[in-house]
Design a binder for these strands. Structure first.
Length: 589
DNA sequence: GCCGTTTTCGGCCCGACTGTTTTCAGTCG
């Protein structure tokens, strides 16, 4: 059993315990362990083999036993018992914004409701408002929340779809008769939200792919089965489409299934101009018509005298002609990234120490990183006071004296308070190497107020970067009332860098905003906002956003060497290009 | 249920916001 599956199991136990009314700290212990497993460097199975499960942060004797059972048997008697005790639909109800475990319990106990459908009916029939502690507003909030869920139904964030796809790919690759497995569809194109997980399986001879997948422990039901196609739904509600193709037809099928349809249309128009037809070049009109016409996508594109167009660009936004005319940006890859400028550690709400995060960053080949904890007002994240921040700066200075091939920048993710002030004094901000300013409160303010806060931050002499500029949480929370054009205008005017927050929960700025930013000449930084070592890997998601936004390495801050990064910061340009000396209280630009 | 540079018990993530309420409970970040 993989770490991911263990994590899912523990998270489900946590949810079910919470629905049972267990004490919050116990529930949190399960959730914390689930998170730790999700991003563990090493497979839990090998830790188990060495008897070291309890080295996982948040895993003690009890959880180690439960994990061991899952690893040994693939099952958990505890989880199965919980599933018996708590109706499964209650867990779905937790996903309704505004509904927590307490309310779900009240609703279940009084009305016997166990599904989202029953919940909606009860709300429409005004039966929720009669329950203790609930009123008409709660009832309306539930209906609104259900609407939002429906909108997002069958839409999964990339960050959930991708690990699941990788898991299935690995397992399918190991089956006899399978030559090759790849992801296709919107997931391969790197869309932030995807409808389903499309997998293309190239087969050579008899295979049991369909049989194995139909009884896979992650699979809840088989939606459709055809000779060369299997459609599934997982327990987590993700739709998975598996397409079986003969090995020699793999490339055309993969190209076809990757899409997008708009890209295929654009290719068609481009081909027509040249009196060619896509079918004759080997791209089928329907999957069933795929022939063994080319062996790689590169080969197909070259038949059209085009350079290879990466999946992230295949959206029918003019990429074909741009490719032809050499107007596509240089392809950015993970190798272009020289450092990560938004990192949390145990000082605030991160999981690992500065040293551990540094080691993880060095292992990725980075040259630098910025430690940017939350500031004081974000108490939930144990935000740092000025004193704690200065102590941390000392530790960073000591570490830097030790390191000869890596630099740790001392920074902060300072809160932009509801009134537009920053959460730390100017002289503190001035003494740091880099300052990210972010909004974490007052999400419901009107556009005027939100923009006034962002403007104040961007005009602030010591704010270098605006973190997750729109505040959206994918599939969970819309952005606050940002006027994007005005934001970009201000960023350009003030020389403030905007973040592409690479956390798959956010992807903020998104690809469209990133593309607009480039037009405004605004510099962008891809930051992971990592709270543990494993999540440094989220850089991949940020790269995907950048590619889809047609950004090249030159449009980004952290593709530069450290010297170039420092020179691009507002604080080091406003005063004649001199780097600010820590603690000197530099003159304002 | 986890954890420990004062602890093997008693903390642990706190405060704003909202709605349902006459003083607070639940949710969320």
């Amino acid at each position: 059993m993989t770490n991911l599956e263990l994590s899912w199991a523990l998270a489900e136990m946590g949810d079910l315990l919470e629905l049972k009314g267990e004490e919050p700290f116990k529930v949190r212990a399960y959730q914390r362990a689930a998170r730790a497993l999700e991003h563990l460097e090493e497979e839990a199975a090998s830790l188990y083999a060495r008897g070291e499960l309890e080295r996982i942060p948040g895993v003690g004797k009890n959880l180690a036993k439960k994990i061991a059972e899952l690893l040994e048997t693939g099952r958990s008697t505890f989880l199965e018992q919980l599933r018996q005790e708590v109706p499964p639909g209650l867990r779905d109800m937790l996903a309704v914004p505004g509904l927590g475990a307490k309310s779900v319990r009240v609703i279940h106990q009084h009305l016997g409701i166990t599904t989202l459908e029953e919940l909606e009916r009860a709300a429409r029939e005004r039966r929720i408002r009669q329950l203790p502690g609930m009123g008409s507003k709660t009832e309306l909030a539930i209906l609104r929340g259900l609407d939002m869920l429906k909108e997002n139904r069958d839409r999964i964030p990339l960050g959930i779809a991708r690990p699941l796809a990788q898991l299935f790919c690995r397992q399918l690759s190991a089956l006899p008769g399978v030559a090759k497995v790849e992801v296709a569809g919107s997931l391969r194109r790197g869309c932030s939200m995807v409808g389903d997980v499309d997998l293309v399986v190239g087969v050579k001879g008899p295979t049991e792919v369909k049989e194995v997948m139909a009884r896979h422990p992650q699979v809840k039901e088989v939606l459709l089965e055809e000779e060369n196609r299997l459609s599934l739904r997982t327990w987590a509600g993700v739709k998975v489409e598996i397409f079986l193709v003969p090995e020699d037809k793999f490339a055309p099928a993969w190209l076809y299934l990757t899409g997008s349809p708009a890209h295929r249309e654009e290719l068609g128009r481009f081909a027509a101009e040249r009196h060619l037809s896509l079918e004759k070049l080997g791209l089928p009109r329907r999957l069933e018509e795929a022939e063994a016409s080319f062996r790689s996508e590169e080969e197909f594109y070259s038949r059209l005298e085009l350079p290879f167009i990466v999946p992230e660009w295949r959206e029918g936004r003019g990429e074909v002609w741009a490719a032809r005319e050499g107007r596509l940006p240089a392809l950015i890859t993970l190798k272009d990234i020289k450092g990560d400028l938004h990192i949390h550690t145990r000082y605030s709400d991160g999981l690992h120490t500065i040293r551990e995060m540094v080691e993880a960053a060095r292992a990725r080949g980075y040259r630098y990183m910025a430690i940017t904890e939350h500031s004081r007002s974000l108490a939930v994240a144990r935000g740092l006071s000025a004193e704690q921040l200065l102590a941390q700066r000392e530790e960073i200075a000591r570490l830097n004296r030790e390191l000869d091939d890596f630099v740790v920048l001392s920074g902060i993710e300072v809160d932009i308070l509801p009134d537009g002030r920053l959460d730390l004094e100017d002289d503190i901000l001035a003494s740091l190497d880099i300052v990210i300013a972010s909004i974490h409160s007052g999400f419901n303010q009107k556009e005027e107020q939100i923009m006034a806060r962002l403007e104040a931050a961007m005009r602030h002499p010591w704010v270098d970067i605006i973190g997750h500029p729109t505040g959206r949480m994918l599939g969970r929370r819309p952005s606050y009332a940002v006027n994007l054009e005005r934001l970009l205008e201000l960023a350009a005017e003030t020389g403030t860098i905007l973040e592409i927050n690479a956390s798959p929960d956010r992807l903020d700025l998104d690809e469209d905003a990133a593309r607009r930013a480039k037009e405004y000449g605004v510099l962008l930084a891809i930051n992971t906002d990592a709270h543990d070592m494993g999540r440094l890997e989220d850089m991949w998601y940020g790269i995907t956003v950048a590619r889809r936004g047609w950004l090249g390495p030159e449009d980004l801050l952290n593709t530069r060497e450290l010297d170039g990064v420092l020179k691009a910061l507002k604080r080091n340009r406003g005063n004649g290009g001199k780097h600010s000396a820590p603690g000197q209280g530099n003159a304002r630009p």
